[in-house]
Amino acid sequence: MSASFASALQAAREAAAAQHYPQGALYVVATPIGNLADITLRALHVLQLADTIACEDTRHTQTLLRAYGIDRPNGQLIALHQHNEAQAAQAVVERLRQGQRVAYASDAGTPGVSDPGARLAAAVQAAGLPLVPLPGASSVTAALSVAGAWAPGAQAGGFVFMGFLPTKAGERQAAAQRIAAEPAAVVLLEAPHRIEDLARALAPLGERPVTLGRELTKQFEEIATLPAHAIPAWLAAQPQRTRGEFVVVVHPAPPPAHGEEDGLRVLQLLLAELPVKTAVRLAAGITGAPRNGLYDAALRMQRGDAGGDAGEP
C-alpha cells in the first residue's frame, strides 16, 4: 500500500465514521472500474467495518483490498457470482439475520448493473432486511458525461440502458433494430472479443452518432464519437482498438423532418374530431411542425369553417 492510500484510510475514518452503519444490513459497494483512485471514502470505511465481504470473485476483491491496505482473512470473504447467486444470497441473508454487516462488491463498478447483485438485493428485500447503497464509479455515467448525446429538436430525453446485447446473431440483430427505433440515447456495454460484431450490428444506423468509450479511467483510455457506419473502419484502423472493455453510447435520433404541408394536413384531419388545443398539440408532436404556426393555422381553419375563436393554446 502506498502512503497515499494510508492517508485515504485515515480520511475515510474521519469522513465516514460519524454516519450510523446498522448491523444486519447489506452494504452494496461500488468499486473502481479501472483506476484505483476512483474509490469513495465511505466505501473504504465500510470495507474495513464489514463482518463479511461477499464478492463476485474473492481473489479479485482480495487484491483490491490489499491495494488499499485493508487486510481481511479469506474466511471473511464469500463468493457470490452469476452461477451461485441464488444459493449464496441465502447464505448472506442468514449472516444478516445474525446481525452481521455484509458488504457486497462485484469485480468493477456498481453491483446489479450488468453484474451480479440484483438477485441478492431481491433476496434481502424479501427477507425484510435493510440495504444500504454506496454509490461510486460507473462506466455508464462516465461515458454519458463526455458523449454529448444530444440531438437538436429531439423529443426524447434521458437514456435507455441495454447493457450487453445477446450473443446469438439473430437476437443481436433484433436488439439492433430496437435501438434503431429508440429515439432516446442508448447505452451498451461490450467485451473486446465481441466489439466487432456489435460494430457491424450498429452500422445500419448510418449517420447516427455513436460514442465509444474504451478502457475508461485506465491508462489507455480512448473516447471517440463517429457515425455508426464508420465504427467497423475505426476499429480496424488500429489493432489495439479491439482490446479492452467498451461502453457504447448511441446518440438520440434526430426528429424526422416534416414540411409545413404535413403539419397542416395532419392538423386538418385532427380538427375534424378534436378541440383546437388538442389537435394542435398532437399535430406538432406527430410532424415536428412549430406549435405556434399550427395554432395560427387552426384559427384560420376555424374562421373559414365556423367563424369562431378557439381561445389560447
Rank of each mutant, 00 (worst) to 15 (best):
M1W: 08
S2W: 07
S2G: 14
F5H: 14
A8I: 08
Q10S: 15
A11I: 12
E14Y: 14
A16Y: 09
A18P: 14
P22G: 05
P32K: 06
I33L: 05
L36A: 11
D38R: 05
T40H: 04
L41G: 15
L41P: 12
V46I: 15
Q48N: 15
L49P: 15
D51G: 10
T52Y: 07
E56T: 10
D57L: 09
D57N: 13
T58Q: 08
R59A: 08
H60S: 13
T63C: 08
R72Q: 13
N74C: 12
G75E: 14
G75P: 13
Q76R: 14
L77K: 09
A79Q: 07
A79D: 08
Q82T: 11
Q82F: 03
Q82S: 11
H83F: 13
E85G: 02
Q87A: 02
Q90Y: 00
V93E: 03
E94Y: 00
E94H: 04
E94I: 03
Y104I: 06
Y104F: 12
A105P: 04
A108E: 13
G109V: 05
P111R: 05
D115H: 07
G117S: 06
A122T: 06
A123I: 00
Q125F: 05
Q125C: 07
G136R: 06
G136F: 02
V140R: 01
T141P: 08
T141K: 03
A142Q: 12
V146C: 12
A147S: 15
G148P: 13
G153Q: 01
F159V: 11
V160F: 01
M162F: 02
L165G: 03
T167S: 11
G170H: 00
A185V: 07
V186S: 05
L188K: 03
A191S: 11
A191Y: 00
H193C: 03
R194S: 00
A203L: 02
L205A: 02
L205E: 04
G206I: 09
P209A: 07
L212F: 00
R214D: 01
E215L: 02
T217H: 03
K218W: 03
I223E: 04
L226D: 08
W234T: 01
Q240M: 10
R241Y: 00
R241M: 00
G244P: 13
V247T: 15
A253W: 02
P254E: 10
P255M: 00
P255C: 01
G259I: 07
E260S: 13
E260M: 10
E260F: 05
D262K: 09
R265C: 08
V266M: 11
V266A: 13
L269H: 11
L271V: 07
L274E: 11
V276N: 08
T278F: 05
T278N: 13
R281M: 11
R281K: 15
A283S: 12
A284C: 07
G285D: 14
T287C: 02
R291E: 14
R291A: 14
G293Y: 01
L294H: 05
D305K: 07
G307L: 04
G308W: 12
E312D: 15
